Amino acid sequence: MNERALKIVMEMVEKADELNVKVHRAPCKATIIDAGVEVKGSLMAGLYVTRICLADLANISITSMNYGQLTLPAIHVSTDYPSITTMGSQLADWEICIEGYYGLGSGPARALALERPLPKAVALKKDFYEKIGYQILNPKQIYEKIGYGETADVAVIVIEAPKLPPDAVLMDIAEKCKVKAENVYAIITPTTSIAGSVQIAGRIVEVGIHKLTLLGFDPKNIIFGSGCSPIAPVHPNMIKAMGIVNDVIRYAGSTFYIVNCDDEEYLKNIISRVPSSSSNKYYKTFMEIFKEANYSFYNIDLGEFSPATITVNNVKTGNIFSAGEINPTMLKMALTT
């Protein structure tokens, strides 16, 4: 996946001016692509970042959708490699916290760094999560679960952060991925940027698969995944931006999966627990939830990261099951208050 993603990175480098991104060579010789920190970035840059996160193993397109009185751009993602592209690459479970620098890491570099720990807040709550029925997997267990592993000479990582990373961060990534620092490629997308809004909405399929896996479903039994989510309006305030980029998925993100499952009662039960509407915090905006978690992303209950709707087709029987709803009223409230 890292080799596939590198090809997209090279396209970004070649089209840097067109994409409104800036390429830096760090002192340690790692390559940094700024997609919104010191530059404007662009919607197209966000599409490139989404392709990188998914190792270019998904079809991605942009359209516009009506949600009650709101018309918003929306991203559609579909993949025939759902568990590998999402749990194996796109999942943002790499907590980067070095020398005062903090960011959320995702992308194919994760597949090379299996010894990194769980995010601290998740590790602290692991026993509690398991008592309520969540399946908590460390990085190594994730790849065992999806049946995937890789070695590569290059590491491609996407970091959601408001600043460009210092050498200490890049060197740590190189060490954890067992590659030379000069072979690290880091794409930086602030939550408050255009590219950030796009690439977070582009996680719609991953959000549903992560929730299914969290509830105990085997991701290897997911054959196909697709989803559509509004792209959040860009907001300059990081806390507000963090709220709305997640609320567009919680209140208007739709997902569809083709699965292979022998036990349909079990399947129906899990599906009923996937949508955001199954949470007792559904009528709280994500910004309120973020505040309750002391503005610590990983301190938020993992179950809150959910799509608005899920539809599942079981190839064993041909049956279709669905749960959740698109909620234009809550979407508008989250975006405008």
Score class of each variant (00 low, 15 high):
Ala186Trp: 06
Gly225Leu: 12
Val158Asp: 00
Ile142Ala: 05
Ser254Val: 15
Tyr148Asn: 02
Ile200Lys: 09
Ala308Gln: 08
Pro119Trp: 14
Val49Thr: 07
Ala92Glu: 00
His76Gly: 03
Cys53Pro: 00
Pro166Ile: 10
Ala26Gln: 03
Val234Leu: 13
Leu302Trp: 10
Ala161Tyr: 11
Glu150Cys: 05
Phe321Val: 02
Ser61Val: 14
Asn237Asp: 15
Ser61Glu: 14
Glu144Asn: 11
Gly208Met: 09
Ala109Arg: 00
Met10Trp: 01
Glu160Trp: 05
Tyr298Glu: 00
Ala181His: 09
Val312Thr: 06
Gly36Val: 07
Glu14Asn: 07
Leu124Pro: 04
Leu70Glu: 10
Pro190Leu: 06
Thr192Cys: 15
Leu6Ile: 00
Ala155Val: 01
Ala195Arg: 00
Phe290Ala: 03
Pro108Cys: 03
Val315Tyr: 10
Asn269Met: 12
Thr151Ser: 15
Leu19His: 02
Val122Met: 07
Gly105Cys: 07
Leu331Asp: 08
Ala45Ile: 04
Met330Glu: 14
Thr317Pro: 09
Val49Ile: 13
Asn313Gly: 01
Ala161Phe: 14
Ser64Ala: 13
Leu335Lys: 08
Leu212Cys: 05
Ile258Pro: 03
Thr191Leu: 15
Ser277Ala: 05
Leu302Ala: 10
Arg203Lys: 10
Gly46Lys: 04
Ile136Trp: 14
Asn260Ala: 08
Val179Met: 01
Thr79Pro: 06
Ser322Asn: 10
Trp94Cys: 08
